[in-house]
Structures are given as C-alpha cells and as structure tokens.
Design a protein around this nucleic acid. Sequence first.
DNA 1: CACATACGAGACGAAGTCGTTTCGTATTTC
DNA 2: GAAATACGAAACGACTTCGTCTCGTATGTG
Lengths: 202, 202
Amino acid sequence: MDRMITAADAPRSPGRPRSVRADEAIVEATLDLISEGTSIEALSIEAIAGRAGVGKATIYRRWPGKDALVIDALRKLKGPPPVPRGESVRADLLTLLVTVGRTPDERAARVMPCLIPEINRSADRMRIWQEITAPRRQVMREVLQRGMVTGELRADLDVEVTIGLLTGPMLMHRMLGWEPEVAEQTLAERVVDTVLAGAAPA
Amino acid sequence: MDRMITAADAPRSPGRPRSVRADEAIVEATLDLISEGTSIEALSIEAIAGRAGVGKATIYRRWPGKDALVIDALRKLKGPPPVPRGESVRADLLTLLVTVGRTPDERAARVMPCLIPEINRSADRMRIWQEITAPRRQVMREVLQRGMVTGELRADLDVEVTIGLLTGPMLMHRMLGWEPEVAEQTLAERVVDTVLAGAAPA
DNA sequence: CACATACGAGACGAAGTCGTTTCGTATTTC
DNA sequence: GAAATACGAAACGACTTCGTCTCGTATGTG
C-alpha cells in the first residue's frame, strides 16, 4: 500500500521541514469534500488543494496521486472500536448497534456510503475494507460468545449470522434510508429484541 | 421527472422516425458502463455514445442530459418482484432472500452498489429508491403476515424489523463482501433459520 | 551567514468533457 | 419526386483536470 512521506519522516535533513499543518489540512480537506458528496472518482487534486489552502505541489510532494491520498485519509477517519460495558448481553449489543457505521468522527456516517462502489470495484479494496471493519465485528463476536457461556444466549447460536442480523438492518437504515421515521436508538432496541426472541412461536 | 421522447411517441409526423434500435442501444450502453464500474458522476455522454455506436446528437435529441438518461435506464432495469410459491413460510422466505439485490437482469447486482452514494446525496433520490424497492418489501411483509395467521410465526412478531433482519445480511453479503466464502443459498438458509429460532435460549 | 528544502501561487501543454452545430446520407410521409 | 426528419460522424469553443515546473518567499540546519 502506498504510504505518504510525512512531516514526521525524513532523517532530520537540512532545509525547511514539511509543515505538519499542511499535512493535516490536506487530509481534512479530502475528508470534508468526500463527506459533502464529492464522489471519489470526481474528487480532484485541485479542489483538495484549494480547500486546504495549499499548493498542488505540496500535495504531490507527499502522495503519488489521488488514490494514495484518499486511502491515507480514510485510515485517519477510523477510530478504535467501542468497548461495551459488559453488564448484560442485551445492553452491550445496544451499545454496539447505535455505533454501527459510525466512528468518533461525525463525517464517517456520510463518507461510508460513498465507499461502497469503490469497494465493489476491486477485490483489493474489499480486502482493505474487511480489515478496517474486522475489529468491530470482533467486539460483537466476543459479546455473543460471552452470552453463550453465561446462558444469556442459546448454546448452539450461529454467531456469524447473528452478527449480520444485528448489523445489517442498522446499515440499511443508515445507508439506504430504511425506516427513516424510526429513531436509531429505538430501531436498535427493536432489532436486538427481535433477534433475541426469534420469529418462531414460543 | 424528466421523460425521454421515444421512438414510440411522435404523432406520426412526416420525416424519418426515431430509431428504436438507437433507443435500446443507448440505454444498454448506459447500463453496461455503470455495471462495469463507471460511477454515475464520471459517466460521460461521449462514452455512452461511443459504446452505443451512436452520435452524441442522437442522445441529446432524446434526453435533456445525463441525469434523465440514467434515471430512464435504471427504470428499465427493474423487473416485477418475485412471487413466492406459498408452501411454507420458511421456503418462501428463502426464495425471496436469494433474490435480494437482484432482478431478472444480471447487471442489477453490480449496478446497485453504485447507486448508494447517489441515494445518499439527496432526499429526492432516496424517495425514488424507496418507491422502487417497496414492492419487494411488500411481498416479504405479506409472507410474514401470512405466517402469523397460520401459526408458523409468533403472533406478536415485529414484522418491519424482521424484514430488515432477513434482508440486511443479504445486502451486506452482496455489497460489502460480508462472509465472502459462504454461498448465497447457504447464507440465506442460515439467516432464515437463525431468525426463526432466535438468539435467546429455548 | 550560507545552504537546503518547503511553502503558496500559478503558468504550462495535454487530455477529456461539455452541449451545440454542421456535415452528407438515409428513411419516411404526402 | 419533394419535404421533413433522423441518422452517424465530427468539429466547435469553453471549461476542467491532470502532473510538472517555475516563481519569489519562508524556515530550518550547519
């Protein structure tokens, strides 16, 4: 994967050092533009430079092209996965569900839908996506496995599919406008409770 | 919504009539390009004309611009929702799930992910999306309600959320590469059975 | 201080796209 | 046969973006 040459790098060479301020301004401008609706394909270096208040050369000095810059910017967007409090499985799942498709950064919710076409354009990018989202799935997996041990969940639960059952509707809600009138907290509760109860008669 | 002026229109005026062959070639070329990964924003009239073997003027004679053409092309892509056979709720749900994100046209599965950013760019487009997908959700809703009557499903089932539980994982699978190693038929069975059984202990 | 490098700004030619218009030709009605 | 309209092809001027390069200036190391 392409890596930028940051202000932090460089073996203390002579001359003026790279501006950390420019580093951040470029990445921020990139994320802003994407989150405002500019598709990655239509994203231009000119626009990024203009938004960042930076010369184009300053960008090309750091990244070989648009794609490498975008990948670096998206890496910056991700935060650590949320840590559930561990009280009950139901409460932990609720905590995780309301953050599906979110990160600490408010722009993430708007950026994510824009990435789906990119993901589907190459197996390589889909792999990158899997790596980024894996830690979050792992957290949910551990909560479910804990529930199977404590008896809060059935012992023969299909854990992987259950992750999909919980996550899928939340993603649909956020990315496809499913059930737009229902608040996220309410939807999360209904999803968890319906998954727990099952559709078959008691 | 903008409408094209088709070969079928025109009150039998004199002069050479519009070529139906060109109509179809333009729409087909548009769908081909989108399904091959060209984002809608990056889609060019030039490329469509070239692919269709048609002059640009022939396109501008029918549609006012790119957006109107794309909307018309997507309309052509949709087919009627599948009709479940009505044997058992479980079998009907399986039938519906394997067609989630599909239509009779093979390209639909590749086109759909490309539309998500467009949907999220305006409330108007999200509404159009809802209208297109509503009939399919309605079919699943009826299957679930039938199951509540026959006793195959619990009487107090949250129908809307259950639709999301069933559909969401299949969409994740298709659009985000979730569980890429699992076959669709197998995944559909596991999803249905896990939803039916529920996660809580028996 | 001398030197090296980065900075923002912008000029550069090449390429692509836009929507319109003009070709010469083809097809249909009256 | 005359008139009307559509056809594919291509040229038009205006615009945007590309990646490179050159300005004059700023900020570091030695």
